[in-house]
Every structure is written in structure tokens, then in C-alpha cells.
Amino acid sequence: MIQTVIVVVHLLVAIGLVGLILIQQGKGAETGASFGSGASGTVFGSQGAATFLSRLTAVLATVFFVTSLGLAFYASHKASEVRDAGLPVPMMQSEPRAPVSEDVPVLEEQAPQAPATDDVPVVE
């Protein structure tokens, strides 16, 4: 339940961050405002919009990092629960995949044999 809430908040904040970053103008766009293009009549004032949007972006970025850390903590906590659940440990690659039973005879004459090097024709 808590993981679902964190994931939903994380996704909403990520979408909000993308939107805020796309709305903001670069530093080069402010040169037109200094020549009287009417920026002082905006809703936030001449510098208020940039300050408000940059602060809101910083807050959303902080929430994004906190939810990222929360999800990482939750994933590591779940991994330790699975490890402690008593499940069998996967075998290493160096161990044989199936144990050889002495009840089942291994018939080497039925196994395919590689041809001898004398039997293979040489193509030149």
C-alpha cells in the first residue's frame, strides 16, 4: 500500500517537473524584457515568475529525490524479506546443474562421439 502511494507521488512529481522545466525560459530570453517589452505587467511581476517557477522546480526536485530514496529503501527492505523467507538459495554456476545419481547408469556408447581428426577430409 505504501509503495503504491510513493510510486503515484513519484510519477506525478516527475510529470510536474517535466512540465515546469518546459515552461521556464532560458537566460537568453530575459534580454527582451529589459528593453520594455511589457514584462512588468505579468501576473508575477517582472522577476516574480522566474523566481516562483524556479522555487517550485526546486521543491518538486526535492520531493522527487525523497520519493526516489523512499522507493530504494522499500525495495531493499523487500529484498531482505525475501532473502530471509527461507527460500532455497540459487546454485552457483560452478556447481553441477543436476546431481548424478548412481542408480542411473551412464552409457558412453550411446553418447555421440566427435570424429577423429584423421577421418575428416582436408579441403585445400
Rank of each mutant, 00 (worst) to 15 (best):
Q47Y: 13
V100K: 04
T4S: 14
S76W: 15
L12G: 03
P88W: 01
E102A: 14
T31F: 07
L22A: 15
V13T: 02
T57V: 02
V122F: 11
P115N: 05
A79I: 05
S94L: 10
A61F: 02
H77M: 07
L12K: 03
M1G: 09
G16D: 01
R55M: 12
G32R: 07
Q47W: 10
T51R: 09
A79P: 02
A79N: 10
S80Y: 10
S34A: 10
L53K: 01
G45K: 00
G86A: 01
S54Q: 07
V59Y: 01
Q24N: 00
E108L: 15
L107N: 14
G41M: 03
Q24G: 01
S34L: 09
L60I: 00
T51Y: 11
T51D: 12
E102W: 10
G26H: 04
M1V: 08
M1Q: 03
G48W: 05
A98I: 14
V8I: 10
S54L: 00
A50M: 09
R97S: 14
S46E: 15
P115K: 00
G28C: 02
Y74R: 08
P99M: 07
H77Q: 11
G48V: 03
D118C: 07
T117G: 09
V13H: 07
H10V: 00
A49N: 07
V43R: 12
V66Q: 05
A111V: 09
V18C: 12
V122W: 06
V66G: 06
F64Y: 13
E124A: 08
G36V: 01
Q24P: 06
F35L: 10
E102I: 13
L71G: 03
A79E: 03
V106H: 06
L71P: 00
R97F: 12
E108N: 15
R55V: 12
Q3L: 10
L60H: 04
H10F: 04
T31C: 02
V120S: 04
V7N: 08
A75D: 13
H77W: 15
I2V: 11
L17I: 00
K27R: 14
F52L: 07
E109W: 15
A72W: 11
E81M: 09
T31W: 08
V89E: 11
Q113T: 08
F35Y: 14
T31V: 09
V9K: 06
G48I: 05
A33R: 10
V100T: 09
K27L: 12
S94R: 13
L11S: 04
V9T: 04
V104R: 03
F52A: 11
S76A: 15
L69D: 02
D84Q: 09
D118R: 07
S46N: 13
V100Q: 13
G19T: 06
L87H: 08
T57E: 11
S34K: 08
